[in-house]
Amino acid sequence: MTKSTAVSPQAVHEAARDLFASRGYRGTSMKDIAQVLAVSAPNLYNHVPSKQDLLYRIMDVAMDRALAALATALDGVTDLAEQLRKATEVTVLDFLQNPAEVTVCNTEIRNLEEPFRQAIIDKRDAYSTQIVAIIERGCAQGLFDVPEPRVASFAILEMGNNAKAWFHPGGQYTATEVAALYGTFALRIVGHRPSS
C-alpha cells in the first residue's frame, strides 16, 4: 500500500509531465503518478481535480512560457532578419531545455477535451502567427525571398523538434550553440538577402 505523504502541486505537475512524455496520457493513470510521488492516489486530488486538468496545466504552462520567451526575444528588435533569427533561437532553446513538456504538447493535444483543447490551439496559433508575420513582412520588404511564407514558417517551427531529436546535453554543442546555428539556418530557409 502506498504511503500518504505531503506533496507539492509542482511535484505533481512534474511527475505527470514526465510520465505523460514517456508513457503517453492514456498510458498513465493517477495511480501511476501517485506511485512516483509515494502518495496515495486520493492525495493527488488535493492538488488537481483530474488527470485531464493536469494535462491541460502542463500544456498551458509550456505555452505561456514559450509565448513569454518569444515576446522577450523580440522586444525592441526592429530588424526583420534579426527578429526571425531570435524567434528561431528562442523556439529551439525552449525545445532543448524543456523536452518533456514539449513532447506532451506535441503528442497529447488529441487527448485534450474542450474547452481545454481550443485554448491550447489558440496559444499555438498565436505563437506561429508571429513567425509567419515576420517572414511575410520580410518578403514584402525584399529582405526575404521565399514563395510560401506560411510553409517556410512550418519548416522553421519544426526545427525545435529536429534539434530535440538528436541533442544531448553532454554532447559537442551546448543548447545555446545549437539554437544559434538553427537561427542561421532559418535565414537560409527564407532566402535572406543581406543589405549590401
Rank of each mutant, 00 (worst) to 15 (best):
M1P: 13
M1K: 12
K3L: 10
S8V: 06
A11E: 12
V12H: 01
V12G: 01
R17G: 03
D18N: 04
L19G: 00
A21R: 02
A21T: 01
S29D: 00
K31C: 06
D32P: 04
L37V: 00
V39F: 00
A41P: 03
L44S: 02
N46I: 09
N46Y: 10
H47S: 11
P49C: 03
P49A: 07
I58R: 02
M59H: 08
V61H: 04
A62L: 05
A66S: 10
A68K: 15
A69D: 13
V77I: 10
T78Y: 01
D79R: 06
E82R: 12
E82M: 10
R85W: 06
K86M: 02
A87H: 07
T88C: 12
E89Y: 12
V90D: 08
N98L: 09
P99K: 03
T107G: 06
T107P: 03
E108H: 03
L112D: 06
E113P: 04
E114M: 09
F116V: 06
Q118E: 11
A119T: 13
I120N: 11
D122G: 07
R124P: 04
Y127G: 11
T129Y: 08
A133S: 04
I134F: 04
E136C: 09
G138L: 05
G138R: 06
A140S: 07
L143E: 06
P147Y: 12
P147S: 15
E148C: 15
A152K: 03
I156D: 09
E158R: 12
G160T: 06
N162H: 12
A163S: 08
K164L: 14
W166L: 13
P169G: 04
G170N: 14
G171T: 03
Q172W: 08
T176C: 10
A179Q: 10
Y182I: 12
G183R: 05
G183E: 07
L187P: 00
R188E: 15
V190R: 05
